[in-house]
C-alpha cells in the first residue's frame, strides 16, 4: 500500500512538472525544440580554407572531410588526434600527431613546438565526442591562429581507408 501511495504521489509530481515544464518551454525566450534529431552544427564554407594566408585570426571552425582533404593537399596541415594515447595507437588519420585532450598538461612541450600560423585540425572519434572541439578552443586560446576541428571525426574518415595503425 505504501508502495502504491509513493508511486501515485511520484506520478502526480511528474505529471504536474511535465505540465509546468512544457508551458514554461512554450513561453521561454530560449526554448528547447522538441526533436529526435540533434541540432546540426554548421560547417565552415569552403572559402574559409582557400587563400587562408590572407585570413585574419578567427575562432575555430568546423571542417568536413572534403575540405580537410583539399586542405591537406594544398597546405601544410598539423593534424591532431585529441584522443587517448591508447586509442591513437589503435589507429589514426595518416600524418596525425597525438595530443590527448584529457592529458593536455603533459603535452605542453609538444604544443609549444608547433608552428602557430599553420592550419591545425583536431579530431577525435566522431560527432558524439567533444575532445576535438574542446582541444581546438584550448589551442585557440593559447594563440594558434588557424584552427579547425573535424567534427565528423575518425568514424567519418574511416570510410576513406586512410588510417595508419
Amino acid at each position: 500500500m505504501y508502495i502504491s501511495k509513493t508511486l501515485l504521489q511520484s506520478m502526480l509530481i511528474l505529471i504536474i512538472s511535465a505540465f509546468l515544464g512544457f508551458a514554461n518551454n512554450y513561453f521561454s525566450s530560449q526554448p528547447v525544440k522538441i526533436s529526435t534529431e540533434r541540432p546540426g552544427t554548421p560547417e565552415a564554407p569552403d572559402s574559409t580554407f582557400h587563400n587562408s594566408h590572407s585570413l585574419n585570426i578567427s575562432e575555430p571552425v568546423i571542417i568536413n572531410k572534403n575540405q580537410l582533404k583539399n586542405l591537406i593537399a594544398t597546405e601544410d596541415v598539423i593534424l591532431v588526434d585529441a584522443r587517448s594515447p591508447e586509442e591513437y595507437a589503435a589507429g589514426y588519420i595518416s600524418g596525425a600527431i597525438n595530443i590527448p585532450f584529457d592529458h593536455l598538461g603533459d603535452y605542453m612541450h609538444e604544443i609549444d613546438a608547433l608552428p602557430k600560423d599553420q592550419w591545425l585540425v583536431t579530431y577525435c572519434e566522431g560527432p558524439r565526442c567533444d575532445k576535438a572541439e574542446r582541444l581546438a578552443w584550448t589551442l585557440y586560446e593559447i594563440g594558434f591562429e588557424r584552427i579547425a576541428y573535424y567534427n565528423a571525426g575518425l568514424e567519418d574518415w574511416q570510410t576513406t581507408k586512410d588510417i595508419e595503425q
Binding site: 512538472s17 511535465a18 515544464g21
Partner: peptide, 13 residues
Amino acid sequence: TFLAIVLPWIEIC
C-alpha cells in the same frame, strides 16, 4: 529535450 523541459520542474515541485 524531454528531460530539459521537465526535470527542473520535478526538482521544484
